[in-house]
């Protein structure tokens, strides 16, 4: 366990993502009700809760797809306290450029593109050739193109998808598609990766590989991770901190050990299921 959980926290550092008192209303429906959350540099944090608890909405608020009704979202890419920045209401593409990358619960790959091209799109955020550059294709453009292709390929190698490079993304097996989403997100050079149910629909073998992959991303790239997941085994083994939401409210937060024995959480999940699964 101790190898898995490393804490890089020191006292004068700010969390890289700090959500304060965030609320999101849809008409009369309160999907998220004053939720706080913070992630330290290098942490793996999980956001769990029953279906419809507002987890994906939470992601959408952070990544700019929705603008929260109230509350604040701050980021601080290196955890330096003087460089905190509020990102509420920024457009999704700007949020991505600031270093928050995400995957989607219902896989959203670019279906007409190959695996490599999907990752190349991820590089869009970190490159900048425009119309004129594209038309004249000077040295700068050529270098950038080469950089994009090479970077994308090396990410695919790291994620273990190199053998599929020129396949159409839609022709990949399901588990590989989920990993491709992660690869694509990594190409944007994030400091925080938001994974929305990355293990959904995977078999135990694939889930195990995913567990290992997520750890590797954190350990070698130093990218922090926030994940939504229903697979409790994965959540418990990976995360250093767990937030539990239900009906849009945060009902608990703590280490996996604390969450495992939290009676409110167990109740929210309707009974003993969670306890059993974790003991197994």
């Amino acid at each position: 366990m101790s190898v898995r959980h490393i804490s890089l926290r020191s006292d004068n550092m700010k969390p890289i993502l700090e959500v304060k008192n965030m609320t999101m209303d849809f008409g009369g429906l309160r999907a998220i009700d004053s939720v706080d959350l913070s992630i330290e540099k290098g942490q793996i944090v999980a956001l769990i809760g029953p279906n419809g608890a507002g987890k994906t909405t939470f992601f959408n608020c952070i990544t700019g797809i929705y603008t929260p009704t109230s509350g604040d979202i701050y980021i601080s890419p290196n955890g330096e306290s003087d460089k905190q920045e509020r990102i509420n209401g920024l457009k999704p593409n700007i949020v991505t450029r600031k270093g928050l990358a995400r995957t989607f619960q219902n896989i959203r790959l670019f279906t007409s593109m190959t695996v490599l091209e999907n990752v190349m799109i991820g590089c869009h955020a970190v490159t900048k050739v425009g119309i004129m550059g594209a038309i004249f294709r000077g040295i700068k453009t050529k270098t950038e193109e080469r950089f994009i292709v090479e970077k994308s390929y090396s990410i695919l190698e790291k994620i273990g998808l190199a053998k599929y490079v020129d396949e159409l993304a839609v022709n990949l097996p399901y588990g590989a598609q989920r990993r491709l989403e992660i690869a694509r997100a990594l190409a944007t050079n994030p400091f925080l990766l938001l994974l929305d149910e990355p293990a959904a629909g995977m078999n135990p073998q694939e889930t195990m590989e995913l567990d290992e992959l997520i750890l590797r991303i954190r350990n070698t790239e130093g990218i922090s991770i926030l994940l939504i997941e229903h697979d409790m085994k994965l959540v418990m083994s990976l995360s250093e901190k767990i937030y539990v939401v239900d009906y849009g409210r945060k009902i608990a937060e703590g280490t996996p050990e604390e969450i495992r024995h939290n009676s409110v959480v167990i109740k929210a999940y309707l009974g003993e299921e969670i306890g059993e699964e974790c003991d197994a």
Binding site: T96, I121, G122, H124, A134
Partner: peptide, 25 residues
């Protein structure tokens, strides 16, 4: 030239999935 460029790829991506494209910056 445009077709096989960063811009061209962005167009194709938007055609495929607007939300995912935005999430890619």
């Amino acid at each position: 030239r445009l077709k096989n460029s960063r811009i061209g790829r962005a167009w194709t991506a938007l055609k495929d999935d607007e939300i995912a494209s935005q999430a890619m910056g």
